[in-house]
């Protein structure tokens, strides 16, 4: 079976998602590398996740579909701009979030901010799905993108460590 990032690339291409601004993350690295290697995509880093959302919203309104990539802590900076831009204006801005802060997190800051992600998405009434299994990955990515585009609504895809392996503690926990 294909690795998760190949499945994501396939679905992005099938749905004409060409513009990928991102704030990098270690777990996203294979996806970012694959996107940069493929001339279908226009991909670049932004200084903040807010900026990436603005760029995607502008591009979508001008006819180029996009998805912003980030990690959990980056999502936590977005409540205001999500509420007042893609939610208020009904723009299908897509996000893919690499999930840090759970299932073996070693950084208490990441663990703390992780707890704000789902409540924020729920409070914004934003469509969001967690991808945990390889065999469901393509279906969830494809259908979430299609629904966002058809209903003019933003949506978030969360990449669980169950799918990606997450980021393991680089050092052995001492006594």
């Amino acid at each position: 079976m294909q690795p998760w990032h190949e499945i994501v690339v396939e679905q992005l291409k099938a749905n004409e998602i060409r513009l990928i601004p991102y704030v990098p993350d270690n777990v996203l690295k294979p996806l970012i590398n694959a996107i940069h290697a493929d001339p279908f995509f226009t991909a670049f880093t932004t200084a903040r996740e807010e900026e990436a959302i603005g760029i995607v919203c502008g591009a979508v309104m001008a006819g180029m579909r996009g998805m912003a990539l980030m990690q959990t802590s980056g999502f936590a900076t977005l409540a205001n701009v999500l509420a007042s831009l893609p939610c208020a204006f009904q723009i299908p801005a897509l996000m893919m979030i690499s999930e840090r802060g759970t299932l073996g997190e070693f950084n208490i800051g990441q663990a703390a901010v992780w707890r704000t992600m789902r409540p924020t998405l729920e409070a914004l009434a934003m469509e969001h799905h967690v991808i945990t299994r390889l065999d469901e990955c393509g279906f969830i990515v494809d259908r979430t993108i299609r629904q966002a585009l058809s209903t003019q609504q933003p949506a978030a895809l969360i990449l669980s460590p169950l799918l990606t392996g997450g980021k393991a503690n680089p050092v052995k926990v001492g006594g």
Partner: peptide
Amino acid sequence: YMLGSMGLAIPIALGVAIAQ
């Protein structure tokens, strides 16, 4: 015309500029 999302006029314009 923006409504909130303070600071995003330039990023939105950049998105439009890339798309067209």
